[in-house]
């Protein structure tokens, strides 16, 4: 196991190194840089001033030099300066991470809390009216884009309560913040919950047909015991996998949700930074997301061992 962990760790480092090259190169393949955008925003063309700004920001350096300068900074904790705000990139990124982390965590929580039990119920009550209703709910969850759902929720709140759940002020308390984040988390978690619901259902249906389930029933185990202790435990592995993948994909859903609900998180910030070609912000943030994805995948793999004793990672 120890050797496996070391191998995985080295593989993670290699993956992140590859990611860093991809992020760096792809960002520079996008047309335009901060200098183009700043001058475009001012509606003016002055090649000399543009070149001066590029030199000031180090954009005139060979790409290898720029890459090395970034990696060197990354390893020493210096993320550089944001081009637009002219503040240290770390000061721009760090305060936003907890907001997005809370939102993502809450969205994931809702998706599991809603998706898994409803998936189990749908499987256990297969072909009943309740199963059909839940299948329609899950299909609508997959079909409704989160930005549209978000707008519908906002409109509903404004029309029926005369209040809008947007993050306009610093939340006054923990529960106030949970309240503000719950609604967007529901909007973004709805899709993931639908996916989890469908996967749990199909996985459960497959397990419920297994011999050992029949044996458990023959031995007189209660329905709840069969469904939750025997069936769900065996059906949950693919669900765990999808939760891991969804955690990484969530950032895509958060971009629009943070925009619609005006939440000052990293996802919306990332889009803005891409728009401005604010390289220090974009490359560090995408790198951070890559690290989170790699770590989550690792944790999912480790979770298999805990959930299924048959799985062992050999040295």
């Amino acid at each position: 196991m120890a050797a496996y962990l070391i191998r995985r760790f080295l593989l993670m480092i290699l993956t992140l190194f590859g990611m860093s090259i991809l992020i760096f190169v792809m960002l520079r393949l996008v047309p335009g840089n901060i200098s183009d955008i700043l001058f475009d925003a001012a509606g003016m063309v002055n090649p000399a001033d543009k070149a001066r700004l590029e030199a000031e920001l180090g954009l005139d350096q060979p790409i290898i030099v720029q890459y090395w300068s970034w990696i060197k900074g990354l390893l020493t904790g210096d993320l550089g300066y944001a081009y637009v705000s002219e503040k240290p990139a770390i000061d721009e990124i760090l305060p936003r991470i907890p907001v997005t982390a809370k939102l993502a965590g809450l969205a994931l929580f809702f998706s599991v809390v809603i998706g898994v039990p409803l998936g189990v119920i749908s499987a256990v009550k297969q072909d009943s009216a309740l199963d059909y209703v839940l299948r329609v709910v899950s299909l609508s969850g997959l079909s409704l884009p989160s930005f549209w759902l978000g707008l519908l929720i906002l409109m509903g709140f404004v029309h029926y309560f005369g209040w809008i759940p947007i993050y306009t002020d610093k939340p006054s308390s923990f529960w106030h913040e949970v309240g503000l984040l719950s609604i967007p988390a529901l909007a973004v978690g709805f899709r993931a919950s639908a996916l989890i619901m469908r996967l749990t259902r199909s996985s459960m249906l497959e397990v419920l047909r297994q011999d050992y389930i029949r044996t458990a029933r023959a031995k007189g185990a209660s329905n709840a015991s069969v469904n939750y202790n025997h069936a769900l435990r065996n059906a949950v592995l693919p669900v765990i996998t999808i939760i891991g993948i969804e955690a990484a994909f969530l950032i895509g859903g958060l971009i629009v949700t943070e925009t619609v609900f005006n939440i000052p998180g990293v996802a919306r910030f990332l889009v803005e930074a891409i728009r401005w070609r604010d390289y220090p912000i974009v490359q560090n943030l995408v790198m951070f997301i890559a690290v989170v994805t790699v770590v989550v995948n690792f944790l999912v793999d480790m979770a298999y061992v805990v959930l299924d004793p048959r799985i062992k990672y050999e040295d």
Partner: peptide
């Protein structure tokens, strides 16, 4: 792309 507009016209 909006970043390219004025430069392209120029």
């Amino acid at each position: 792309d909006t970043s390219q507009w004025h430069a392209k016209v120029a």
